[in-house]
Design a protein around this nucleic acid. Structure first.
Length: 643
RNA sequence: GCCGGCAUAGCUCAGCAGGUAGAGCAGCUGAUUUGUAAUCAGAAGGUCACGGGUUCAAUUCCUGUUGCCGGCACCA
């Protein structure tokens, strides 16, 4: 005689065991219709599982996160059912829920084509239409193996063999389809519907590149068609922001087949932006007590044996080149060079902390399949810096890095971060004492800065703990850029030292840190973050002066010169085109301001100003415009408001 | 690196059961002298990614390479 307590605190008693579906029906017809599953004493179960004891029960609908997950999982099963019907010789493997959707991996003799996806989608819709009941069956391990073995589902058999013996095995049936699954699932296929298959791709069995490659079909599923449409629209939005497309359109950069993949060419418009970014970076670092270094791009291979890169990082390095019988190595990192500068003379404890920064271009042999626009390249410039300090200075230095990092990121409009503190992993170098000191210092610095962070236990590098920072862009995507890493390894390997207060030699602590990470990648993130609409201070071309007709060309040039004299990046558009044409052209280029000059403006020394969002900012004297724009530029304002 | 797809003018894309190609935009020339998101006209622009093969004939079919796209794996 179960007494059931509902989430609102009310209790319902029933004379006999009752299923989740019956309970929902008893509460209300609307709920019964929306119900997908039940939670019984915290356990998610199928809707038609029986409740035979006193319990806390809630009905799960697709409006809850759990409900949506079940919906997606059941849609993955629906996909598998459709595939099995259309391609009987395909074996099923796994079909989990992921962010925004699901996938299902199949061992298919022939890869799926886009046309196959359409056919599969159509079959899925038919199966929804058929409204098949979804039922659960508990089976013994031997029986499960026998059944899937008989069906020729060898991957399933392998999965079953790996499931711990004590765990109950359940099968889910819907029509002719049966799958091994923990569940829970929706009660009927008819409740599914707001889904779309998105792509097909290869994926290794069990994620191991030594295993055979399976065919993975990705899909997305939502509670309502409206949410599905919104999601697809958001995907389209992300596509519109694609830095590769915008980069070509705005002539910011290119990657040339003739030169090779992953090697970036900065065109004049992109190079202007980079220059502004780098100038700002240098100024901010100088202000924060850093000195700038320049170091070579190659060095004797031996240096990389000393650093350990040849042992631990060889796969990511280009092969050495020979010169006069000596092997030279293109650098994948800057740190050994900064260490050599440190070691060029004896250092005192009084010299510490030493902060050295370099926009250092490095080359890494990324696998060809990993390359992606500016986000993953083979040659890139790190905004690198190394701090050498005493153990007692760690906390203050980390705090300083955090302040500088936030200051710089905020200037680009990044205010929200996700921060991870990664602690000591297995098999790491360095003493217990130094790991404790360092980890405590990192923690203290984060706490004093009032920053929220998550601890990734054992997620540190073998050479030291680290803080990683992900920035959130304008449409909520997260990008890993900044990193602060302590290093107990390299100072030992290079036998770095300083003379301590007591006259003994001590080993300095080394901190690696980057704020942008890679200038190329950060630029790519900026393009997507701004959708190519750079704030005024970053815009490659800040103003275009466009005359109404040739009669005003001289005046337009005079205005442009005057603004250039203020240090602004100005162009004129003297083409024999109507003003509407020029407006359209420069608006599409995302130039922040267009200064239109005609008879009126020429007459009174003004311009008619308009911004790229189509706002008419009225008429302004040229001198006033110069002042206003100068201020926008130096203040690095995000928006284009003139006030 | 692996699986699949793709590669045609500067860009976006048509086309070709095998008979050496076409549009829009951009660029160029000319006309127009323009008032807030596309003025008109003309000419030009291609080793159909690159190499090999099949064929009387290859941009088209086969094959290798390179690059790109979507994933996977990788990113101490």
């Amino acid at each position: 005689m179960p007494a059931i307590r509902l989430p609102d605190g009310s209790v319902r008693s029933y004379p006999t065991p009752i299923t989740g579906a019956e309970l929902a029906q008893d509460i209300g017809a609307g709920l019964a219709k929306a119900a997908l599953a039940v939670r019984i004493d915290g356990q998610l179960r199928d809707l038609n599982s029986a409740i035979d004891h006193d319990a806390e029960v809630s009905i799960i609908t697709k409006d809850s996160p759990e409900g949506l997950e079940i919906l997606r999982h059941s849609t993955a099963h629906l996909l598998a059912q459709a595939v099995k019907q259309l391609f009987p010789d395909v074996q099923v493997t796994i079909g989990p829920v992921i962010d925004n959707g699901f996938y299902y991996d199949f061992a298919a003799p022939k890869p799926f084509t886009p046309e196959d996806l359409e056919a599969i989608t159509a079959r899925m819709r038919a199966l929804v239409e058929a409204d098949l009941p979804v039922t659960r069956e508990v089976v013994s391990r031997d029986e499960a193996i026998a059944r899937f073995g008989a069906m020729g589902e060898h991957y399933k058999v392998e999965i079953i063999r790996d499931i711990p013996a004590e765990q109950e095995l359940s099968l889910y049936h819907q029509g002719d389809f049966v799958d091994l699954c923990r569940g829970p699932h929706v009660p009927r296929t008819g409740v599914l519907g707001a889904f779309a298959l998105r792509s097909v791709a290869g994926a290794y069995w069990r994620g191991d590149s030594r295993n055979p490659m399976l065919q993975r079909i990705y899909g997305t599923a939502w509670a309502t068609q409206k949410e599905l449409d919104a999601f697809l629209q958001q995907q389209a939005e992300a596509e519109r922001r694609d830095h590769r497309r915008i980069g070509t359109e705005l002539e910011l950069f290119s990657i040339q087949e003739d030169a090779g993949g992953g090697l970036v060419f900065w065109h004049p418009q992109g190079a202007r932006v980079r220059r502004v970014i780098e100038d700002f970076w240098r100024a901010a670092h100088t202000e924060a007590g850093y000195e700038m270094l320049f170091t070579p791009h190659i060095a004797h291979e031996q240096l990389w044996f000393t650093s350990g890169h040849k042992d631990f990082y060889a796969e990511s390095m280009f092969d050495p080149m020979q010169d006069e019988g000596q092997p030279y190595q293109l650098k994948p990192m800057n740190c050994p060079f900064h260490i050599l500068v440190y070691k060029s003379k004896l250092r005192s404890y009084r010299d510490l902390p030493i902060r050295w920064a370099e926009l250092g271009t490095v080359y890494r042999h990324e696998l060809s399949g990993a390359l992606h626009g500016l986000m993953r390249v083979r040659g890139f410039t790190q905004d690198d810096a190394h701090i050498f300090c005493r153990p007692d200075q760690i906390e203050a230095e980390i705090a300083g890095v955090l302040v500088l990092t936030r200051k710089i990121l905020r200037t680009f409009g990044f205010e929200r971060y996700e921060i991870n503190l990664s602690t000591r992993p297995e098999g790491s170098v360095g003493s217990d004492a130094i790991w404790e000191t360092a980890t405590a210092a990192l923690t203290a610095a984060l706490q004093h800065a009032g920053l929220d962070y998550q601890v990734d236990e054992g997620g540190g590098a073998f050479y030291g703990p680290k803080i990683d920072l992900k920035i959130e862009d304008a449409i909520g995507r997260k990008w890993q850029c900044s990193t602060i890493q302590l290093d107990f390894n390299l100072p030992e390997r290079f036998a770095m030292e300083y003379v301590a207060e007591d006259g003994r030699r001590a080993v300095p602590i080394m901190i690696h840190r980057a704020i942008f990470g890679s200038v190329e990648r950060f630029f790519g993130v900026l393009i997507e973050h701004y959708e190519g609409k750079f704030p005024f201070w970053l815009a490659p071309t800040q103003v275009v002066v466009a005359p109404i007709s040739e009669l005003h060309a001289d005046y337009a040039e005079a205005v442009a010169h005057q603004l250039q004299a203020e240090g602004l990046r100005v162009e004129t558009d003297l083409r024999s085109e109507k003003i509407g044409y020029k407006i359209r052209a420069h608006t599409l280029r995302r130039v922040p301001f267009l200064a239109v000059v005609g008879e009126r403006e020429k007459g009174n020394g003004s311009v008619s100003l308009r911004d790229r969002d189509g706002r008419d900012l009225g008429s302004l004297p040229v001198a006033t415009l110069g002042q206003i724009l100068r201020r926008l530029d130096t203040q690095r304002q995000q928006g284009l408001e003139l006030a």
